[in-house]
Design a protein around this nucleic acid. Sequence first.
DNA 1: CGCACTTTTGAACAGAATCAAGTTTTGTGG
DNA 2: CCACAAAACTTGATTCTGTTCAAAAGTGCG
Lengths: 248, 248
Amino acid sequence: MLSPIHVHDISFPHLRHACSTCSLRELCLPTGLSVEDMQAVEQLVTQGKPIKRGEALYRAGEPFKALFAVRVGFFKTSVVSEDGREQITGFQMSGDLMGFDAISADHYMCDAIALEDSEVCELPFTEMESLSRQIPALQRHFYKVMSREIVRDQDVMLLLGNMTADERVAAFLLNLSHRFAQRQYASSSFHLRMTREEIGSYLGLKLETVSRTLSRFQDQGLIKVQNRLIELLDLTAMKQLLNQCEGH
Amino acid sequence: MLSPIHVHDISFPHLRHACSTCSLRELCLPTGLSVEDMQAVEQLVTQGKPIKRGEALYRAGEPFKALFAVRVGFFKTSVVSEDGREQITGFQMSGDLMGFDAISADHYMCDAIALEDSEVCELPFTEMESLSRQIPALQRHFYKVMSREIVRDQDVMLLLGNMTADERVAAFLLNLSHRFAQRQYASSSFHLRMTREEIGSYLGLKLETVSRTLSRFQDQGLIKVQNRLIELLDLTAMKQLLNQCEGH
DNA sequence: CGCACTTTTGAACAGAATCAAGTTTTGTGG
DNA sequence: CCACAAAACTTGATTCTGTTCAAAAGTGCG
């Protein structure tokens, strides 16, 4: 399980002050809030709701009440088509916000499932929304985070529409690595929290293809695979594999 | 070229009043604004900027100033990877808003190219943003439109990750049909504004595959293809082809 | 500790890409 | 208005990447 970030907890805005050099801009609540503003935000946020591995934080169709910030743990979000095909639309780790898809139709449009025992903060949307009218920086922050999600989704479209299996898997590993680094976790050696099948669902590949690709990367000396433990041995070669398709 | 919508012009909020039954919720500015609020919005919106076919409304990397609403015409937005592969991320027609991807990094993240002579309204973002703090319905509207884009992007992921060529092309045609219907244009007989290659780029297919699939659909009596003119002959069979993957 | 789930690997297969040629359409300038 | 060149489209043959089917081995959770 991911242990809490030690430098500061990005879901606690009052601690945010302590770390102005933090690279988690996207993830944190906005910087530079006054003490009163931060208190106002904190009063709205429900802390520390635990979600057990395998449980749903929310499911498609449920009424929209709140956004969620992952405090500890790891989630997947997925859309399931009527005939049962699952498309995983993203993996969320500590500091990530979830639930923006629910604003449009006032109910969640995907399932959010914990891939390990996790803990989330609940951000009641209506209240945050009106608070954001009083705190411009907060409003701007939400716009930015949503915009960032749109950009990320478009990057995934590029991946799904144009890339080979090798490129997809390489992009996936590098993206994970980058996000672990942002959170000050080890970025060249980490545990995958998801199955090969879930990786495949996210990347538009079958689990066998994911497995084979990882094995081949290992044969080529790019990585070391030990079950779900991944070690990145040659970052440079890995990045070349991508032809630098959009930096992450 | 698309002629302007005759019932009301969705980009002119002051005309919005005239059509409370409009099905373009997503596209219009919010309903129920007071006359003063609407005037405030109108004062910010730059009307009638013409863009010639083939011209860029904006390009990736340019500084972010405004969102755009398509008044007349047809656009594509696309991401280009370093090695020149183009992924079209969407097609925009009258009433659609563009540019949300630019909020996150303060510059546009994709190219927006006119596929026919078009006309857009410019919505200066910073001004709209502060106005939206005074008009809750406007703020809510922007959140909703961005959320809608996130949902749409996730639907495209499902398409790119899980669907066969046939399903993709069927989904594409049905989606276009639906959007034309929303705009009170003919929905079972319409002109494609984009090339087979552009359709392919959007759907993650090669242009030959798109062409072949359309030809086969025609042989099967599902559609009639005459160059870029498409006639949908059997909506029901078409929808069955999709196994109802998320309604549109 | 055992059973279910996950992963790996092999062999055959299929769907879409690629390569290639020919045709049609479109847009432009004389 | 027509001629011409460029762009777009169709169709066929072949290739290849990733899927499917299958079986065995490994892992971990209860």
